[in-house]
Computed example of a mutant assay.
Amino acid sequence: MRAWIFHGPGDVRLEEVPIAHPGPGEIKLAIKAAATCGTDLKTYRRGHPTIPVTPSRFGHEPAGIVTEVGEGVTTFREGDRVVCANTVPCGVCFYCSIDRESLCPNLEFLYGAFADELIVPAAITRRNTYHIPDHLSFAAVAPLEPLATVVHGIDQSGIRLGDTVVVNGAGPIGQMHTRLATARGAHVICVDKRAWRLDQAAAAGAVETINIDGIDDVDAIAQRVKAATPDHRGADVAIEAVGLAEVWEQTWKVLRPGGIAIMFGGTPANAMMSLNTSVMHYQEIEIKGIFHHTPRYVRMAVDMLDSGIVDGQALITELRPLEDLIISLEDMAQGNGSKYALVPDLVKA
């Protein structure tokens, strides 16, 4: 079978690897769609702290058909259409005990979505794998993992009916934040440098879009965004959905007094931003970092895809054969597309 293998930054290869069989509690999937992600691009370029040992299987947004079940598995059977999350918390550590499972130091990770087949570990099979509703395509549910993290961010944002929410970034993550904030009854303003992404944000529910192409000064951007809010007072909630320190700074600067900043995008290691302590103190702004998801948020994300609250298919720019991973990552880096679904069954032209 074929699998993309991460050997280090800039070195990812499609290789032939031995066929594996599931052990007790595990299932094997024939991959029908595996979505690319901004995290995959970052990992391809600079590595990732959750991949400490190389070579390693690559990709973490799979959907497929169960082709084999291990001993003791009763929830799934051969032929089931399933999607799984990329991690599972241990359930017994301090952070799990205080309902902060995203901070679990014992998270079990799953990599290997960019392949013909995938073995899902027992713990993920048991706690974080779900049947795909018949009316949804594999590509529509493959982005489950990032949607679950966005559900986490929105849940922690405190967005209320009628709030003005600024989403900085109109990529797939920004589009999902826009959709869910709109579903909560918020007036969403989306900010980005690419017109086609802002068009997608508008389709996801953004009432206003602001193109900041050519504007590099953070204060100038913040002033322009604040001017679009009621009475120019700033956002009730502002969300960072890019992963750059300067956009983190831009995010807190567009808040009204008493506003909440959700810092969602992962920045390069040890990146720093400036923070005016007087503003934070006297204006009582809140800054929250958001990382990852929990089984509860994953379950909620599955329900949102099922009900149509989120259109997962709309996040996918194109279906491509498995061989096109590097091309797809480079297209993402150039801004030519948002997410691509790699489909092993597709034959490369």
Results as ranks from 00 to 15, higher is better:
residue 2 R to P: 08
residue 2 R to A: 13
residue 9 P to T: 02
residue 9 P to C: 04
residue 10 G to N: 03
residue 11 D to Y: 08
residue 14 L to M: 10
residue 14 L to D: 15
residue 16 E to T: 07
residue 18 P to H: 04
residue 20 A to Y: 14
residue 23 G to N: 07
residue 24 P to C: 04
residue 25 G to V: 02
residue 27 I to H: 01
residue 29 L to T: 00
residue 30 A to D: 10
residue 31 I to N: 07
residue 42 K to Q: 15
residue 44 Y to M: 10
residue 44 Y to C: 08
residue 49 P to E: 11
residue 56 S to D: 11
residue 58 F to K: 00
residue 58 F to T: 03
residue 63 A to P: 15
residue 64 G to Y: 03
residue 68 E to S: 00
residue 74 T to W: 01
residue 78 E to K: 15
residue 81 R to L: 02
residue 82 V to E: 11
residue 84 C to Q: 08
residue 88 V to Y: 14
residue 89 P to F: 03
residue 90 C to I: 09
residue 90 C to Y: 12
residue 93 C to Y: 14
residue 97 S to C: 04
residue 99 D to I: 07
residue 100 R to Q: 13
residue 102 S to W: 06
residue 103 L to A: 10
residue 105 P to Q: 06
residue 106 N to V: 00
residue 109 F to H: 10
residue 110 L to D: 12
residue 114 F to H: 13
residue 115 A to E: 07
residue 116 D to V: 01
residue 123 A to C: 04
residue 126 R to I: 05
residue 130 Y to R: 09
residue 130 Y to W: 15
residue 133 P to Y: 11
residue 134 D to W: 04
residue 136 L to C: 04
residue 137 S to K: 03
residue 141 V to Q: 11
residue 142 A to I: 04
residue 143 P to Y: 11
residue 144 L to K: 12
residue 144 L to S: 09
residue 145 E to H: 07
residue 148 A to M: 08
residue 149 T to L: 06
residue 150 V to M: 03
residue 150 V to Y: 03
residue 150 V to K: 10
residue 153 G to F: 03
residue 155 D to W: 03
residue 156 Q to C: 14
residue 160 R to D: 14
residue 160 R to P: 04
residue 160 R to G: 08
residue 161 L to W: 14
residue 161 L to K: 09
residue 163 D to S: 08
residue 164 T to N: 08
residue 166 V to P: 09
residue 174 G to I: 10
residue 176 M to V: 07
residue 190 C to S: 08
residue 191 V to L: 05
residue 197 R to P: 15
residue 198 L to N: 02
residue 198 L to Q: 01
residue 200 Q to C: 03
residue 203 A to T: 08
residue 206 A to L: 13
residue 212 I to W: 12
residue 213 D to Y: 01
residue 213 D to T: 06
residue 215 I to T: 12
residue 217 D to S: 07
residue 218 V to N: 11
residue 218 V to T: 15
residue 219 D to Y: 13
residue 220 A to I: 11
residue 225 V to R: 07
residue 225 V to I: 15
residue 232 H to I: 02
residue 236 D to P: 09
residue 241 A to S: 03
residue 242 V to N: 02
residue 243 G to R: 05
residue 244 L to V: 08
residue 245 A to M: 14
residue 246 E to A: 13
residue 248 W to Q: 13
residue 250 Q to K: 06
residue 268 P to G: 05
residue 270 N to P: 12
residue 272 M to F: 12
residue 273 M to C: 13
residue 274 S to C: 10
residue 275 L to N: 11
residue 276 N to V: 09
residue 279 V to K: 13
residue 279 V to W: 12
residue 280 M to R: 13
residue 288 K to H: 11
residue 291 F to L: 14
residue 301 A to I: 00
residue 305 L to A: 08
residue 306 D to C: 00
residue 311 D to L: 07
residue 311 D to G: 05
residue 312 G to Y: 10
residue 312 G to W: 12
residue 316 I to K: 04
residue 319 L to P: 02
residue 322 L to N: 00
residue 324 D to T: 00
residue 334 Q to M: 12
residue 334 Q to I: 07
residue 335 G to E: 14
residue 337 G to S: 06
residue 337 G to E: 14
residue 337 G to A: 03
residue 338 S to T: 09
residue 343 V to E: 05
residue 349 A to D: 15
residue 349 A to G: 13
